[in-house]
């Protein structure tokens, strides 16, 4: 790969940047408590929380662990858990 003059990138280049490595806390989704309202998905600043079979889950490759989903979930179905390596 050669660098482009002026750091010009084509669309989709951020996919290569796995921002999940930045995370300190991981959101853990409890499917039993989830009512499928989708508020977590609407508030996620990364746009990476998606619905599957009426339940919601995040993409840990890109989740930075900001915790907004957990703060917004009206059912307390998302808990922020310290990442341990």
């Amino acid at each position: 790969m050669k660098l482009s003059v002026g750091a010009v990138a084509e669309p989709g280049s951020t996919r290569a940047n796995k921002t999940g490595t930045w995370r300190t806390f991981r959101p853990v989704f409890n499917a039993d408590l989830c009512v499928g309202c989708g508020i977590c998905s609407q508030f996620c600043p990364e746009g990476i929380i998606h619905e599957k079979n009426d339940k919601y889950a995040t993409d840990y490759d890109y989740c930075k662990g900001c915790g907004i989903c957990a703060a917004e979930c009206p059912k307390g179905a998302i808990k922020m858990v310290l990442e341990v390596k």
Partner: peptide, 28 residues
């Protein structure tokens, strides 16, 4: 120009460069 900003063919100018590439852009 080398690169042209055009809504029909979107591009990011001055994109994010992590520590593995920032130095090289400055060197350029």
């Amino acid at each position: 120009p080398v690169h042209v900003l055009d809504p029909k063919k979107p591009k990011t100018f001055g994109a994010f460069a992590d520590p593995s590439l920032y130095t090289e852009f400055r060197y350029m």
